[in-house]
Amino acid sequence: MRNKIYKLITAGLSLVLLINFANAQSAGETTFKSTCTACHTVGMGKLIGPDLANVDQRKPEAWLIKFIKSSQSVIKSGDKYADSLFKAFNQVMMPDQALTDAQIKEVLDYIKTKSPAATTASTSTTSETATEEAPSISSTGDAARGKDLFVGNIRFSNNGPTCNSCHNVDMEGVISGGALAKDLTQAHSRLGEEGVKGVMAGLPFPQMKTSYETKPLLEQEIADIVAFLKDADKQASAKSTTGVGSTMLIGGIVGVVVLLILFSIFWIKRKNRTVNYSIYERQIKST
């Protein structure tokens, strides 16, 4: 009996190991595709984050592992390169990745294999190829439908949670959303069309991932929401250009002065000091 069980277990284990070994080559690739592609490309130009081609030549592996695990702690530690990256990419925070060192190494290995020769990678060509290849989703979104989806008037077909339960967009006619996650009013200009799409398709943020992993958004839905966010961004930027700035303050001060003058005219007959004023003024004071 016992032998039979042992045999079964060893057979099962060896089978699992075999499968693992068979997939070992593609482990880095799967991790990269599931967690990184929303924001990054290899040799196809910038998305939300930088192009990762030849990233191993820019920084040592130990630094990369630290950065991938917690980008913000590296930035806060005063690393100048990390800080400049953060600023160069619209201060969009790279979410912390719950990956082991081994997994990260696999990903880095995968990037290395995919990277073209560092010298040949010119940014102009890569960005061109990026725009050519990256949009895998049709960009003909319907902004009105996007708005309905965002607010929750229409349900996502896979029953994903409504956007505005966590996100807010400042736009006329749109009900205020939650404050649990990033305000998306200017998401379009911050991340670019590809970036916004990438976030919704690739789900790089852990909370987004748990919310939508089993209930993914359809391509058309993503396109609609992108169109809606584009509109919202346009409106918001149009509004911000009419900012009043210091005129509000000056107007306020002038208004107060005018009101005070009006009041003092209106109540000019009021009794504004004691009847005994002149007497008290003449009296000798001890202090």
Partner: peptide, 15 residues
């Protein structure tokens, strides 16, 4: 009504 929050002819303590 126009003076309801500030009664302008009140004697003050110094009166």
């Amino acid at each position: 009504l126009t003076n309801i929050f500030y009664n302008p002819n009140l004697p003050v303590i110094d009166d």
